[in-house]
């Protein structure tokens, strides 16, 4: 099955975006993102903490629907899913 992962802003700069990945069905969402992010340490570190969890401020969406941090490790992806990973900014 194919899943599309979209990184935004700084995450896009580090990891690219609109990445299509072929995965076995039933894979956990966090693992899908982690597999891509691991290709570049800086990108991985920007998104995940030392324990391998999404950093608490990172916004993760699946098909336009926001996921709670805990859900990202339990929700599995399905064919055609679009995952968006976004870092809020704080400057003004």
């Amino acid at each position: 099955m194919t899943v599309k992962v979209r990184f935004f802003a700084r995450f896009r700069e580090l990891l690219g975006t609109d990445i299509l990945v072929e995965k076995k069905s039933g894979m956990v969402l966090a693992t899908v993102v982690k597999d891509i992010a691991q290709k570049k340490k800086e990108g991985y570190d920007a998104i995940f903490d030392e324990k391998g969890n999404f950093r608490e401020f990172v916004i993760v969406m699946r098909n336009g629907k926001r996921l709670e941090p805990a859900e990202t490790t339990t929700v599995t992806v399905a064919d055609g899913d679009e995952i968006a990973v976004f870092p809020p900014v704080a400057g003004g």
């Binding site: 802003a9 700084r10 809020p88 900014v89 704080a90 400057g91 003004g92």
Partner: peptide
């Protein structure tokens, strides 16, 4: 609400 960083904003 608005916020920015670099060339990014929300």
């Amino acid at each position: 609400h608005g916020a920015i960083r670099g060339l990014y904003g929300q």
